[in-house]
Amino acid sequence: MSPLLSVEGIDTYYGDSHILHGTSLEVAEGEVVGLLGRNGVGKSTTLRSILGHTPPERGEITFRGDSITDLKPNDISKRGIGWVPEDRRIFPALTVEENLKLARRTDTVPFETAYDYFPKLEELSSSTGGQLSGGEQQMLAIARGILGDFDLLLIDEPTEGLAPMIVDDVVDALEEIQSEATILLVEQSVDVVNALADRIYIMDKGRIVAETDDIERDSELIDQHLKVSTE
């Protein structure tokens, strides 16, 4: 059976800077796949390439067996790939409710689902995105992804810059979502990936350098490649 998402040997540039060097990865339906790596190794660029915002110059990306390499971002989204970006990208002048309405492209997922996952958002429904704290913005970003009814969610550093207590709330919500969704999760925190991912790719200098489905067993390998804290 072909994977839901397949990234095959992509090379992506920002201007003259060569960021991704033949990056390849796969995500099967129902999987939560982690993409671990230090800052600046190309994790977010990998997501941007899949989403069509920074298309690769070489290689191919397929979704449900069809090439999406040359599609525009809105067409890629319509195929069923959603994005919860690194810096949340909440629309600051729109209210929480308006942010959610915009994200709800179809009637498939009831609007209230967002509030079921994050009850606090209902209290804040009339507040503008710019008035929310970092944690509240992250809840809203994830809730937008949920209401989008996507087949695959690309989630980028969901716990970055959040207080430890909020990190726990976000991880709890993602654990709940993962039972019903396919997720490609970019993270720097091994603990978060450990809690959520079925399988993990490790990235360094624009390349996938290791893959594991047992992070406990391969922790030495991960430390060797990532040199990140596992605290």
């Binding site: 915002h53 971002p73 809105n74 989204s77 970006p85 629309f91 729109l94 942010n99 915009l102 937008r144």
Partner: peptide, 24 residues
């Protein structure tokens, strides 16, 4: 209107609006 919402959102972040499936 929904279209007005798209426009007000696109003023701040066209990439995000595109990734929600709208043609900016």
């Amino acid at each position: 209107s929904k279209y007005g919402l798209i426009i007000r959102a696109a003023i701040f972040d066209t990439e995000m609006v595109e990734s929600m499936g709208y043609d900016v």
